[in-house]
């Protein structure tokens, strides 16, 4: 099998989000490989270790710094990496991104058996790109997978958690799978593997290399646009109602009626 694993460079989970005007203040942010993508890379590497896969290609679209997220994927065990980076990509929405990723897959031979994604990226948190890629390629997909069994050349069996139980899907390959927490416990990239990753091939493509016109991506090529960012409102202090039950109930009802007007 040939597996594509999609990787995104995102701010570290401990980042204190600050705004600069109506944009995200990116100064001093430490970037990491999106934690959900780690599940995807780990799953692919386990399939390779189990001799079910021959090649794992880690793919990212993003600024030059996304190379580090790809090196991380290579250190976990991907064989090679592809980065699409181009100033014109700035402002691309999820659909524009999905279109670019589809072009990368074509450029890389189009013969992938499995496309693995993290179920969501912890920064934009849209959950959309994997499904859009699946739709553009007309491939079956299973999202938020917590268990995966793959029979190379034939099918994948994916388990998803749903309220009160599990859903089990059988998908014919090639297929798109998005990975959830619980699918596996990603290994720490060891120091020897980090050094080996340095020597693995990492190809960089510009839009021109992929035959994409700048008007198809970025703000111009997107159907949605981020107008501004706002921090969530600071949590106000709670209100404590004290006293005998009759008094408390009366006060609470008054509060619900008059102050927050829900009854």
């Amino acid at each position: 099998m040939k597996i594509a694993v999609f990787c995104k460079s995102v701010p570290d989970t401990e980042t204190k989000v600050r705004l600069k005007g109506d944009r995200l203040d990116t100064s001093g942010i430490k970037y990491i490989l999106n934690p959900y993508d780690e599940f995807a890379v780990e799953e692919a590497v386990r399939m390779k270790e189990a001799k079910k896969a021959e090649e794992i290609v880690a793919i990212s679209m993003g600024p030059a710094r996304a190379q580090e997220a790809l090196r991380n994927a290579l250190a976990i065990g991907a064989d090679r990496a592809v980065l699409v980076t181009d100033d014109a990509l700035d402002g691309s929405d999820t659909l524009a991104t999905a279109k670019v990723l589809v072009k990368v897959l074509e450029k890389e031979g189009g013969d992938f058996d499995l496309l693995l994604f993290g179920q969501r990226a912890i920064d934009g948190d849209t959950w959309q790109v994997p499904s859009q890629v699946a739709a553009l390629l007309d491939l079956p997909q299973a999202t938020c997978t917590v268990a995966l069994e793959v029979e190379p050349g034939s099918k994948a069996v994916a388990t998803r958690l749903v309220e009160g139980g599990e859903e089990i899907h059988e998908l014919t390959l090639p297929a798109v799978i998005t990975c959830s927490k619980g699918l596996n416990e990603p290994r720490y990239p060891s120091l020897p593997n980090i050094m080996k990753a340095k020597k693995k091939p990492l190809t960089t493509y510009s839009l021109g290399d992929l035959g994409i016109d700048a008007s198809e991506v970025g703000k111009n090529g997107s159907r949605t646009e981020v107008l501004s960012y706002e921090l969530p409102p600071a949590r106000g202090g709670g209100k404590k109602v004290e006293g005998e039950p009759e008094e408390v109930v009366a006060e609470l009802v008054k509060f619900l009626k008059e102050e927050i007007k829900v009854i």
């Binding site: 190379q67 580090e68 090196r71 991380n72 720490y188 990239p189 120091l191 980090i194 050094m195 990753a197």
Partner: peptide, 13 residues
């Protein structure tokens, strides 16, 4: 880049 990845592994541990 390698040093940053090493630091990241140390943080995870």
């Amino acid at each position: 880049e390698e040093q940053r990845l090493m630091a990241e592994t140390a943080r995870k541990i």
